[in-house]
Amino acid sequence: MCHWRRVRNYYKRCRHYLDLPDEMIQCDDRHCKFSDRHPPDCRGPRCIQTCWQYRQFPQQYEPVIDGYCSTCIIMGHVN
Rank of each mutant, 00 (worst) to 15 (best):
C2L: 08
H3S: 04
H3L: 12
W4R: 01
R8D: 04
N9T: 01
Y10L: 08
Y10F: 12
Y11P: 03
Y11E: 02
K12C: 14
K12V: 13
R13N: 12
R13T: 03
C14P: 04
C14A: 03
H16V: 05
H16Y: 10
Y17G: 10
D19R: 15
P21R: 10
P21D: 08
E23G: 01
M24A: 12
Q26N: 13
R30H: 11
R30E: 07
H31C: 08
H31M: 14
H31N: 10
K33H: 02
K33N: 06
F34G: 01
D36N: 14
R37G: 09
R37W: 08
H38G: 01
C42F: 08
C42Y: 09
C42P: 01
R43F: 03
G44E: 03
G44P: 06
P45C: 08
P45M: 05
P45S: 11
R46F: 11
R46M: 07
R46C: 10
C47F: 05
C47V: 02
I48W: 05
Q49Y: 07
T50H: 11
C51Y: 04
W52N: 04
W52P: 00
Q53N: 11
Q53V: 05
Q53A: 09
Y54I: 04
R55A: 05
R55Q: 15
Q56F: 14
Q56D: 06
P58R: 09
Q59H: 09
Q59D: 14
Q59V: 06
Q59R: 02
P63W: 02
I65L: 11
I65C: 03
G67M: 02
Y68H: 14
S70C: 14
T71F: 14
C72I: 02
I73F: 07
I73N: 12
I74C: 10
I74D: 15
M75A: 12
M75K: 15
N79D: 07
N79K: 14
